[in-house]
């Protein structure tokens, strides 16, 4: 599984990255985590409100600092 956090350094983006790390640790899954801060790459995902959460190339959430449980739910549905 590959998770990408899209964000240009806004407070919510940093919060989401930390949340995703906690969620990964909690599930114990093997996950490749990448922080994407290149604006052009973010645009390619058609995301206009950061932070964006991308799981295996699919955008699952935009503009929200999710909770740990919400991230885990997204991971299980992917």
């Amino acid at each position: 599984m590959k998770i990408e956090v899209l964000g240009t350094g806004c407070p919510k983006c940093i919060a989401l990255e930390a949340t995703v790390k906690t969620a990964i640790a909690k599930t114990g899954k093997f996950v490749q985590l990448e922080k994407v801060d290149d604006i052009m790459k973010i645009m390619e995902y058609q995301v206009v409100s950061t932070p964006g959460l991308v799981i295996d190339g699919k955008v699952v959430s935009t503009g929200k600092a999710l909770s740990v449980d919400e991230v885990i739910a997204f991971m299980q549905n992917a």
């Binding site: 240009t8 350094g9 806004c10 407070p11 919510k12 604006i39 973010i42 645009m43 058609q46 995301v47 206009v48 409100s49 950061t50 503009g63």
Partner: peptide, 17 residues
């Protein structure tokens, strides 16, 4: 819609796109 000045850049570029 909510607005946060921190997401003004992706918004602006995304609209141009």
């Amino acid at each position: 819609t909510p607005f946060c000045s921190c997401s003004a850049i992706p918004l602006f570029l995304g609209f141009i796109q």
